[in-house]
Design a protein around this nucleic acid. Sequence first.
DNA 1: CACATCTTGCACCGATCGTTTCAAGATGTG
DNA 2: CACATCTTGAAACGATCGGTGCAAGATGTG
Lengths: 214, 214
Amino acid sequence: MAGRKQFDVDEALRRAMHVFWRWGYSEASIDRLTEGTGLGRSSLYGTFGDKSALFRKSLQRYAQTYHPLYDQALSGPHQSPSAVVAAYLQVTLNRIADPTVPDGCLLTVSATQLPALDAEGQAMVRAMIDGLRAMLEQALMAAGAGEQEAAELALCTLATNKSLAVLSRAGFSSDDLATVAAAAARIPRETTSTTLSSAMDTQDRGKVVENHRG
Amino acid sequence: MAGRKQFDVDEALRRAMHVFWRWGYSEASIDRLTEGTGLGRSSLYGTFGDKSALFRKSLQRYAQTYHPLYDQALSGPHQSPSAVVAAYLQVTLNRIADPTVPDGCLLTVSATQLPALDAEGQAMVRAMIDGLRAMLEQALMAAGAGEQEAAELALCTLATNKSLAVLSRAGFSSDDLATVAAAAARIPRETTSTTLSSAMDTQDRGKVVENHRG
DNA sequence: CACATCTTGCACCGATCGTTTCAAGATGTG
DNA sequence: CACATCTTGAAACGATCGGTGCAAGATGTG
C-alpha cells in the first residue's frame, strides 16, 4: 500500500488506451480498465477522473504516440504526392502490424461509436480527424500537389486509413491490407471533372435514380 | 391488448435494425430497442428471442434489404471493371444519402465492434463481408478483369465501402463521400508488381524499418 | 357462453454499470 | 514520535443492464 503512487502513471494510461482501443468506449467497462491497467478503482478515479476523462486522456495519449510518426513520415521532402500517401499509409500499416497493440485504430473505433460518446469526446474525435486531414493536405501541397488535388488526396488517404482499420478488425490479412494501401497510393490525379456516374455504363446511370427511395 | 399480434413484425424488425445500426450492439439497450420499435419487452422477446438473436435477425434483414440492390448494380453487363466498382459504390452512396436510415453501415459498425459480439454474431458479420467480397470479385471477372485484378479491385472496393461508412459516421459531407467513391473507381490496374514502398522516395524506404518497434 | 390459446403491460429478478465513500496503511514534515 | 497528506483496497451506492414471471385482456373454437 502507499503514501506515494504505487504505479507508473504513464504506463497505466497506455494500458487504459489499449482497453478503449480494443473494446471501444461502451464495452470498456471500469472492471476491464482496472484489470487492464492493474490499478484499483480508487487509483483510477483519483489519477484520471471519471471514465469520460480517462477516455479523452487516452485519445490524447494516442495522438501523442502516433502523431510524431505521421509527422516524420510526412516531413519529406517527397518526390510526388503519391510518395506522401505511401509514406503515410506505411505508418498505419506498421502500427497495425504491431502485435503489442490491438487491431484497428482507436480513432476509427471511436468514430464509429460516436453516438456513444459525450459531447466532449465527440468533439475531440472530430478534431483529431480534422487535424490529420489538414496535416496530409499540407504535406501533399508541399510535395507539389495543387490545392484541389491535395484536398482530394488527403481525403482519400484518410479514407484508406479508416478502411484499413475496419478491415484489420474484421480479420483481414496483412497482405490484404498492404494491397489496399498500395492501390490507394496509385490513385491518379483526376484529369477532367470526375464523378462516379461518369465511370459507369450508360444503362447504369439510369439506375442511380431508381435506387433512391421515394 | 391482444390475442393476435398488435404490430407489424416486419416493420418492427426494420426499426430494431435501425437501432443496432445507429447505436451499435453494445449501446443498443433493450430499452432503446423497445422505444425504437414501439414494442413492449414481452412482445420483443416473444417474437424475436433475446438480444443476440434479434441482432442476428437484424443483420439478415439488412442483407435482405440491400443485397438485391448490390446484386442489381453488379448484374451488368458492364463495359469495364471500373464501371462495376462505380455501380457498386453508387449503391452505397445512395444508402448513405437516404435520410430515413442511420449514418454509416450496420455491417461496418458491427465489424468494428466485433469483440462485443458473441461467436454467432461474429461469424455472421464475417460471412456477410466475405459474401460481398465474393460477389464483387465475380462481377469484376464478368466485366473482363483478370483473376488477380478482380481480387484486388474487389478488396479495394470493399475497403472503400467501409471507409465511406466510417467517414459518414464522423460527419463528413456527402460531397466528400462522393469524392472518395469517385477516386476509388479511378484506381488503375497495377502494371508491375506494386508495393507501398515502391511508391515512396528512396530515403523513406529506410524509415519503414525504423518505424517498427523493437 | 365456456374454455384454451395467445399477446401484452407491468413488476421484478440477479448481474453489472459507473461512481462514491471510507477506513487502513504508507509517506513526508515538524 | 505526532500529525497532516496521500494512496489504496474494499464495500457499497443508485441506476441500468439483459431477461423472466405472471395476471389481465383479447381472440378463435366449441
